[in-house]
């Protein structure tokens, strides 16, 4: 407004810009780290192509050592993200900038690491290190892809409901089902009990990741009861109709919870490859470096 002086802040953290925009980790500072990563890769590639190493490019040439050193330092630095992320220290650093650099410098390792091999791959500890590195990078690429697409879907599915609330509403429906089943016949009550006793979150990792509900007891019970209620007119005071309605609500809630857990699992599962593979990589790398210097 005309009468407002521009606001000054004593401490400048990353804030939304005056035009209301902000950038995610991929676009951070207008793709600064993408540019740096690409420049680094291009530089290495050009040097690789211009320098004539005899008899052929390999890890043992001066260029090979140089690329190898850059690669090792990068790998160690990239691993440090796990520490940085959890260490809340003072100072003007931003984890977003670290993530951005982690992504793009990590991608540039494909070029640096591969050029370091001089395309001499074989069945040895040296190639094992390269393979592990590629595994880490590929799992990372998967990670970026889910980070870029899933949050929107998760937010849409969550629809302002927290996970705790979802589980609470599931318990609430179960409680109502339990009450509503009291007047039912033994046969029907047994069906409802089957739904109540169902371990909603059972099943393995695969079930979690696929969001499959093929073996869902509630769905089976609902189908059975629906066969009976479907044909009858809903007079509004049939306890079975009420159970039918409640089961339908439970199914809706269940599918939301399953989708939520599925998204969460997909956002996390790759880390179970990425991080152990990183440690395996560091181990293999150590073996690789020691053996190289041992057999100098």
């Amino acid at each position: 407004m005309a009468s407002q002086a521009p606001a000054k802040r004593a401490r400048q953290t990353e804030r939304v810009r005056s035009d209301g925009t902000h950038e995610g980790f991929l676009r951070h500072r207008n793709f600064l780290w993408l540019k740096i990563g690409a420049a680094l890769s291009a530089f290495c590639l050009i040097v690789y192509l211009l320098v004539d190493v005899t008899p052929r490019h390999n890890g043992g040439s001066w260029l090979g050592y140089a690329l190898g050193t850059i690669g090792v330092l990068l790998i160690l630095w990239l691993t440090a993200l796990g520490y940085r992320k959890r260490k809340m220290t003072r100072g003007a650093w931003s984890l977003k900038a670290w993530t951005s650099a982690h992504v793009y410098l990590g991608l540039s390792l494909i070029v640096i690491g591969t050029l370091h091999t001089g395309f001499q791959l074989g069945w040895n500890v040296h190639t094992l290190a390269w393979v592990l590195m590629m595994l880490v990078i590929l799992s990372g690429i998967y990670g970026i892809s889910v980070y870029a697409t899933l949050p929107q879907q998760m937010s849409f599915n969550r629809d302002q409901v927290t996970e705790t609330q979802m589980l609470a509403s599931l318990r609430e429906v179960d409680r109502q089902l339990h009450d509503a089943a009291q007047p039912l016949s033994q046969h029907h009550a047994a069906l409802v009990r089957e739904s109540l006793e169902q371990d909603v979150f059972g099943g393995g990792l695969w079930q979690r990741l696929s969001g499959s509900s093929r073996n869902c007891a509630t769905r089976r019970v609902h189908r059975t009861i629906r066969q009976e209620t479907g044909a009858k007119a809903d007079t509004g005071n049939d306890p079975l109709e009420r159970v039918d309605g409640l089961l339908e609500r439970k199914l809706a809630t269940l599918s939301r919870v399953r989708r939520h857990l599925r998204y969460k699992a997909m956002l996390e599962v790759w880390l179970y490859v990425h991080i152990p593979a990183t440690f395996a990589l560091i181990a293999a790398l150590t073996a690789h470096v020691i053996s190289v210097f041992f057999y100098w």
């Binding site: 953290t13 990353e14 804030r15 902000h22 950038e23 995610g24 980790f25 951070h28 992320k85 809340m88 650093w93 931003s94 984890l95 977003k96 670290w98 993530t99 980070y147 949050p151």
Partner: peptide, 9 residues
């Protein structure tokens, strides 16, 4: 909270 957000959300 802002400094520690890995994705800039």
């Amino acid at each position: 909270c802002v400094r520690a957000c890995p994705t800039g959300a």
